[in-house]
Structure formats: C-alpha cells, structure tokens
Amino acid sequence: MPTPTSSREAILSAIRRALAVPAPKPGHHAGESEPQQEPQFENTFSILGQEAATSQKRTWLPPVGESWDEWADLFAANSLDLKTQWILCADEADLKTQLEKLKSENGWKKIGLHRGELTDLAAETLGLENLYVDGGYDAHELEKCDAGITQCDALVAQTGSILSTNKSAGGRVLSILPPHHVVIARREQLLPDLPAAFELMQQKYGDKYPSLMGFITGPSRTGDIERILVLGAHGPKKLTILCV
C-alpha cells in the first residue's frame, strides 16, 4: 500500500507554514522581543559544529577518568550496580578457566553462539552441544540453549554497557533469547564513554550500518510491579562479561 502523497505533502507543507513564525530560543519566553527577532538559528550545534558539541558532551556526562585502569574500575563498579557479572581475565588461559567455571556453576548443557575468534575459543574450551546461528537457526531450539555466547563491538565504562550490532554479536536474537548472555571482549575494546561509542560506530561502519545496533546495559530488568527491581523480564536473567 503506497503512502498517499497527499498526506506526506499535507504534513510537510503544514510544517513549513507553521515554521514561518520563529519560536523563542530555549530558555527564553515567547513575547520577549530580542530572541523573537533573531535573524538566524544560532546554538551550540551550529556555532561549534558537531565535533565540538561531541567533545563538550564529555564535560557534562558522568566522569570516567583518564586511564584504562580507571575505566576498568568504573566498569566493574557499574556492573555491580547493574548486577552484571564482570570478569577481568589475566590471559587466555584464565579465560578458559573462567569459562569452565561458568559451565559447571550454571550447569550448561547446550549453548548458542556465532562464529568468531573468541566464541570459537569458547566452544573449543567448553566442549558442549553447540548451536551456531550463522547459517540460520530454529528459534525454539535457540530458546532451549542454556546460554548465548557472543562477541561485541565495544564496552562502555561510563554506563557499564555493551555496544553490539547484529554483525558483531551473531544476529539480533542470540544475545536476547537464551536465559544467560555471555559476552567475551578484548581489553582494547573497552571505551571510556558514550561519545566514544558513537564515534566508533561511525568509524567502523561508515554508511554501511548493520540493521540493528545498540547498547545492552545489565541483564533484562523491570520495575513495573511496585517499582521493585526484577531481573529477566523477557531477555536474559543473567549477563556475564569476560574481558581478556
């Protein structure tokens, strides 16, 4: 069913008609003469340009520190707050040990995962029944997996978030359908803040964005009943991040 061009045109021309009268700048009231008569749009955005506006954002958002160690500490603190399990591995041998531990603690029998350097390493280490999503999968089968293991694009210290896309993390569903989401990331993937995360997306994907990108911040949660926090509303009840 095509859009009736009439509605599109009607809306756009109504917008243009409406905008013929300028509105007062934020922080000013209508009727104050000076901003009403201002000839041109001037705000932080247009004066400084996008890049300056981005670097300025840094000075307003929650502080993150300067060094990698500070970022890692902040990520650990945020994880505690969010009830994310954050494991900083010393090396790949330690990563393997941690994976084994997770397997026995959680009684994993079957895992869902995608092809990737770190996820392949995990599959090899765990030696469980694997469901690889790369070539397509059955959602019912994926739902029966005890955990979904993925990689990601980056970790964001400021908010304790994982930045991932359907390209980096094995599609849209793997990270959300199984009850336990496990993310394996490299140390150099830890970013300080949200502006850095958006810069990375732009640099990495240019105009070829994957169809789904986004931040995962803690396990699935709800407060809809008496504003009391419950984990695992619809997505994973547990979220583990292994950083190596």
Binding site: P62, Q158, T159, S161, L212, G214, F215, T217, G235
Partner: peptide, 8 residues
C-alpha cells in the same frame, strides 16, 4: 544511567 536496552 542508561536503560537496559537501547536499540538503533
């Protein structure tokens, strides 16, 4: 600080 899922 950020909600659980922010999806583009």
């Amino acid at each position: 600080a950020l909600t659980g899922y922010n999806t583009l």
